[in-house]
């Protein structure tokens, strides 16, 4: 199968996975251009795809790099980091706001994940949103499997601490209105 046809086929199969990973990774709902760039990059890099590799993991890895490059290029990476830390501009409709409209528990969980340090967040989102195994996560991040497992374990511990602290400070709605 030629590159174009294969990438089109993968687009049909994995577009939703890539879209959702990018939404939760960037904290923005409007990531469709990044999804498009991911698949166009995949097309251009198809010669480097190993036939024994899992195409989904390969695409997630490209999606992550696409998001990082995109924001670096636009010097917005720092802004995204701040967005992920949930210090949000009230006029901007972010993912947390949208989740809040659906169910507060979702927004609360996502905000807590977003306030983790970058390495913790990377592992949590790859395992939790992209549903990658530790081996696949290690491939995407270029880490050892052991580092992935240890980091994930620490991230869960930290997340519980954050949620415990935030829980004692009241609900998200209350925090926002104050």
């Amino acid at each position: 199968m030629d590159a174009g046809r294969q990438i089109e086929q993968w687009f049909y199969e994995y577009e939703i996975d890539i879209l959702n990973y990018l939404i939760y990774y960037t904290g923005m709902r409007d990531v469709e251009d990044l999804v498009q760039d991911t698949f166009l990059r995949a097309f251009n890099a198809f010669h480097s795809y190993r036939s024994d590799a899992n195409p989904r993991t390969w695409l997630i890895s490209i999606a992550r790099n696409t998001a990082i490059d995109h924001f670096r290029k636009k010097s917005l990476w720092e802004k995204v980091k701040r967005t992920l830390i949930a210090d949000q501009n009230e006029n901007e409709s972010t993912l947390t706001d949208q989740l809040l409209l659906m169910e507060e528990e979702y927004a609360y969980l996502y905000q807590s994940i977003s306030s983790l340090k970058q390495s913790y967040k990377e592992v949590v989102l790859l395992k939790g949103i992209a549903e990658l195994s530790s081996e696949e996560t290690a491939n995407v991040l270029g880490w050892s499997v052991n580092k992935v497992n240890v980091t994930f374990h620490r991230a869960v511990k930290k997340l519980n601490l954050i949620m415990k602290e935030e829980g004692s400070n009241g609900t998200l709605d209350e925090q926002r209105s104050s």
Binding site: G4, F11, L19, E32, Q36, L99, M102, G128
Partner: peptide, 24 residues
């Protein structure tokens, strides 16, 4: 995290992406 909402791509953007892959 599996219970977090799943989003879908808008149909026109989906179509546009397919067309861009074919164009590329």
């Amino acid at each position: 995290m599996k219970e977090l909402p799943q989003f879908e791509m808008e149909a026109n953007k989906k179509h546009e992406t397919i067309m861009k892959i074919r164009e590329a």
